[in-house]
Nucleic acid binder design. Structure first.
Length: 487
RNA sequence: GGCCCCAUCGUCUAAGGGCUAGGACGCCACUCUUUCAAGGUGGUAGUGCGGGUUCGAGUCCCGCUGGGGCCA
């Protein structure tokens, strides 16, 4: 009676894993881990038009990246075609299903008539009571039958949804006897799902609430086979900013994309976790372990949620700042390797990584930001921002001052933030100029930018050699730049 | 069009019939400061509408409206 919980995630390999699917996977994963059950994976690859084998790897890769480890072997629907046929045959034997020889043209005619009469279309059941003779005739004509499930008339089907409570459908609203096996021998979605979930011993079907209308049909099949009906939990949809269902079509929604942008998997996990679920109270930053401990389907809410990129990036910055430097360096290296695999890597070597972390850890939102902000750390030909040059290097004596500063700094033995600051401030006093003049000028000289980390930290992290060179070369580089622009 | 689901700040959400409706993102202001962030402080903004039930409704019931989903 009290079976071990078995949940499953069943994506169809038609593209990268998108955030809606990932969220569903996370909830299934958490519920199984919370209850000490199993989390299973099934690939729904029977839609031969849209499915591509390479997407299977992309999806498995995405799940691994998110840290969702599954139990047991992955089930592929394409390998179970024989099993679906067996069950369909059994349904026919039980009088719960029947072969239908109607052609697409005949069915379209029925549909057209319903449309003309303004009534909801339902299959006429023309083939429900075929005689042996009629059947033979059709077979001789070469017609390939589909198999239809015989839906009982005017029967209320009620199921208890763990999120929504009781939901009732009348069988008259189900669209009539639906096809479970197409004439080409492939099972339809609703049929394959039931056979698979039953065979896999799934106890809790946790999926998006766009599947609510499928549920009564599936329950009818369970009943017809005398199979135990699992629990259902339908999760609220994730919507785009336009309040439309967030789908692969929206773009910018796949795990792949967030990974490329430098989002940490634990940040995405945490963000997705909070879309449709809350532990109550004011908790927001929740680790995987805490989530496993706290997660319960009863705390899932019913209403759809709009995906907010902004909050995801905020959360990502929180996670980045919480990472120990060593770990962050490791992540950056790993991330850049990943980018290189996609032909988008940055020319950053290991010695640059600690510098980037030191300078930007407190100010980035993504891993990518480290490389975008820190070009001057790993390239000597870093660009000068023209606006920064104009604003901070406009004093006629600035280049002389910066060279003078370089000379003073050269004499410095201890290359430390505080020491550098002392030298700079003393030199500014000596010149009788504002400290800020040298501070801002130096920043533009060594980084090309008017904004960035504290100057003294910047100089220390960059190292004496680079700083001296850049302070001395800034004049000629700026002149080159202006000359370049002038022509 | 038929059926189903949903409804608290712009967004994510908290509030077991009894609170000045709380937090977070964003935004604004102030603060810190050599810039920009981060941090700190404060502020902005919400129970869709109408009926009930109740001493008392964001919370329960009904209707409307709106949004969404599935099928056609």
């Amino acid at each position: 009676m009290d079976r071990t919980v078995r949940t499953r995630f069943a994506p169809s390999p038609t593209g990268y894993l998108h955030v809606g699917g990932a969220r569903t996977a996370i909830f299934n994963y958490l519920y199984s881990r919370h209850t000490g059950g199993k989390f299973l994976l099934r690939i729904e690859d029977t839609d031969r038009q849209r499915y591509k084998p390479e997407w299977v790897d992309a999806i498995l890769e995405g799940l691994k990246w998110l840290g969702l480890d599954w139990d047991e072997d992955v089930v592929f629907q394409s390998e179970r075609l024989q099993r679906y046929r067996e069950v369909a045959e059994e349904l026919i034997r039980r009088g719960k299903a029947y072969k239908c020889y109607c052609t697409p043209e005949e069915l379209e005619a029925e549909r057209e008539e319903a449309r003309r009469k303004g009534i909801p279309y339902r299959y006429s059941r023309k083939c429900l009571h075929l005689t042996e003779e009629q059947r033979r005739k059709y077979e001789e004509e070469g017609r390939k039958p589909s198999i239809r499930f015989h839906v009982p008339d005017n029967l209320d089907v009620t199921f208890h949804d763990l999120v929504h409570g009781d939901i009732t459908y009348n069988t008259n609203d189900l669209g009539g006897d639906f096809i479970i096996v197409r004439s080409d021998g492939f099972p339809t979605y609703n049929f394959a799902v039931v056979v698979d979930d039953h065979d896999m011993g799934v106890t809790h079907v946790i999926r998006g609430d766009d599947h609510i209308p499928n549920t009564p049909k599936q329950i009818l099949i369970y009943r017809a086979m005398d199979w135990e009906i699992p629990e259902f939990a339908h999760l609220p949809m994730i919507l785009g900013p336009d309040r439309q269902k967030l789908s692969k079509r929206h773009g910018s929604t796949s795990l792949e994309e967030f990974r490329l942008q430098g989002v940490l998997p634990e940040a995405l996990f945490n963000y997705l976790l909070l879309l449709g679920w809350s532990p109550g109270g004011n908790r927001e930053i929740i680790s995987r372990e805490e989530a496993i401990r706290l997660f319960d389907i009863k705390d899932v809410n019913k209403s759809a949620a709009v995906f907010d990129h902004n909050k995801l990036y905020w959360m990502n910055s929180e996670y980045i700042r919480a990472l120990p430097d060593e770990e962050l360096i490791r992540r950056l290296r790993e991330y850049n390797e990943y980018l290189k695999g996609k032909g988008q890597g940055y020319p950053v070597s290991d010695e640059h990584l600690p510098v980037l972390v030191r300078l930007f850890k407190e100010r980035v939102k993504t891993l990518k930001d480290f490389f975008e902000y820190g070009v001057f750390v790993y390239r000597e030909d870093y660009p000068y921002d023209p606006k920064a040059v104009k604003k901070r290097l406009k004093d006629p004596n600035i280049f002389t001052y910066l060279k003078g500063l370089a000379d003073r700094l050269e004499a410095l033995e201890e290359w430390k933030e505080e020491k550098i600051e002392e030298v700079l401030r003393a030199y500014a006093d000596e010149l009788g100029v504002k400290h800020a003049l040298l501070i801002h000028g130096s920043r533009v000289a060594v980084s090309g930018m008017a904004v960035g980390p504290s100057l003294f930290l910047l100089l220390e992290a960059l190292g004496k050699e680079k700083v001296l060179r850049r302070l001395r070369e800034v004049e000629s580089r700026v002149k080159d730049m202006k000359a370049g622009n002038g022509e």
